[in-house]
Design a protein around this nucleic acid. Sequence first.
DNA 1: GGTTAATCGAGACGGTACGTCTCGTCTTATT
DNA 2: AATAAGACGAGACGTACCGTCTCGATTAACC
Lengths: 190, 190, 190, 190
Amino acid sequence: MAGERRPGRPRSERTRRAILAAALEELREHGYGALTIEGIAARAGAGKPTIYRWWRSKADIVLDAMIDQAYTNIPLPDEGSFAADLVAFLNATFQQREQRPILIGLMAQALLDPVFAKAFRDRFLFSRRAELRKIVERAAQRGEVAADVDPELLIDVVYGVLCYRLMLDHLPLDEKAAEQIAALITRAAR
Amino acid sequence: MAGERRPGRPRSERTRRAILAAALEELREHGYGALTIEGIAARAGAGKPTIYRWWRSKADIVLDAMIDQAYTNIPLPDEGSFAADLVAFLNATFQQREQRPILIGLMAQALLDPVFAKAFRDRFLFSRRAELRKIVERAAQRGEVAADVDPELLIDVVYGVLCYRLMLDHLPLDEKAAEQIAALITRAAR
Amino acid sequence: MAGERRPGRPRSERTRRAILAAALEELREHGYGALTIEGIAARAGAGKPTIYRWWRSKADIVLDAMIDQAYTNIPLPDEGSFAADLVAFLNATFQQREQRPILIGLMAQALLDPVFAKAFRDRFLFSRRAELRKIVERAAQRGEVAADVDPELLIDVVYGVLCYRLMLDHLPLDEKAAEQIAALITRAAR
Amino acid sequence: MAGERRPGRPRSERTRRAILAAALEELREHGYGALTIEGIAARAGAGKPTIYRWWRSKADIVLDAMIDQAYTNIPLPDEGSFAADLVAFLNATFQQREQRPILIGLMAQALLDPVFAKAFRDRFLFSRRAELRKIVERAAQRGEVAADVDPELLIDVVYGVLCYRLMLDHLPLDEKAAEQIAALITRAAR
DNA sequence: GGTTAATCGAGACGGTACGTCTCGTCTTATT
DNA sequence: AATAAGACGAGACGTACCGTCTCGATTAACC
């Protein structure tokens, strides 16, 4: 049964939310690199053991916090063509400005910590890939994707460029970039 | 004149090398996340202030150490076609196994620290991009790259996929991947 | 109420004692000049922050440790005369051999650090002066101290000679010295 | 022979003086506790090895610097009586305000370092004691000192009170103190 | 309505590494 | 041979967080 209750005082939903909110605020103000469990606990008015009881690391907290935000999902209306769908998707993704510092922190953590990398993949990135996969599948039904093209590789290319530019910051991720990337992908899919 | 000598005891080249070597050994044994300046100093038989005199952070040390290694340059013999050149380049890149943990650490650091990101870009990644750019230019001379294709975007795509898979580790970077990526790039370049 | 409890884990009395004991042992073995907070922490099996949480400097630790020792109080039985009382007091003081290196360290620190000097005065030296003051008052009741003699100056003289000889070590602080000093003081008090 | 010349560049008197002056200036500005060899060298425009070649420690430098100053000698005109001589001597001593921080530092060092204590005694304090001894001897010739009074103890008492009050700073060293101390000493000497 | 048990806050604890400071020694070229 | 300059190995400094612990207080379900 899902409704089973354990004895004792139940977990405080109020505290859980305060911790996630505090983490995001600290991140916004000081950046991911300056995040500390102590700082989060202090801002949330929570005890450190409370945090350690429920999360393994600061990355896990931030991941939870990001997933808790509803706006992570991107609507995917059919724009009529693969290229148009891609441009719409990329622009929607690029416009989530406040996610950028969060994402960068989690990417760094995933690089350093394979255990967190798995959680990051399973709980966040794979759902993002699934969105893009829908677009590719829609394009395949329209006949815009050749049979010998691996959809997973197309997805890797899109997110790869995003990831690479987030890290290097040598070229912008703007509307022009969206169109360029979309053009390249559609060309490669033919 | 560039050859002017500053007064005082000159910097010890011996110590410099010992520190870079110690950093790589520590990294190999314990991973980038467990790297400490104290550990490097101890292993190198150097004092901590000596390290701080010459490097700003452990990432700077590792970057210097990696650049010092001669084998970072990849030979680029003309394989006759864009696809063959790309496959050769990618396989040569993938085979540098021992660079992988180093690269992952530096990428994480670049994500967290914009100042280091600039150094990483200027002193390492741009020279890597230049290699790939030569291949693209060769292909353009052969007529394998359409005029309206931005070579920089092609380079971003290649390194983007590499970077993304290094981070996620959801798909391997092996010979099959090299061929798939090369096929996609050549197709997109047409 | 004084008995109120502050929230949080209470201070560990066990650790407090371990630190004070470790400080005295280190001092005994290596001398005050070679005392280090790190050494005390290591010997006590405590963390450095624990020490800094409760003490401002190594001198404060040593002062606490010395005061904690019960044997710092000197019994003052009435020997019948001012001179006899003084001789008894001085001999008792001189015989506390193991206090000497401690005292010397604290005196040095008091010279260098006015803030510590105040603590040293208020928490240790003034109680020592009070003991001697009792002897002087007893002598005054016996009529052995002239009305125009300032008892505080008499006390300063006694401790001054002690302090000066501890520093210079040009003359011993033995039974003969005790008698000489007592004779001089009684003569001066008349 | 005193006129012997050793080969090589002779010691720079200019540098020696610069170092002693720099030590006193640093001491005046930041206090003895904050004195560092590096700071002295930097201010003197000298190299650290030059300092270490000629002095064993910063205390030795300061001792040299203080002795170099001519004004350390106190004139001892005959005031006609032991008490008057003492008052004059004490007031002259008390008025050397700028010597106080120097003296305090050297006293602290002497407490911590027996090797320096010997140098301090032999090169500075014994000459001070000699001055006071002259006054006592003058008083003895006048019949103001009883035969069974040890002049050395009288000297110890005077310097002991000075030393003790310098350390504790619980009572001032002013004209009133000079008279009180002189009165006590003359009384004790009778 | 009292008991029980898990949670909460607070904060002290043993640790580790940080980045800095100063030490006393060394290695240069210069004087 | 002595100097200035300054790099070096060494090691303690005082601080920041870590992740764990011990408290008393709180909060619900259960008896």
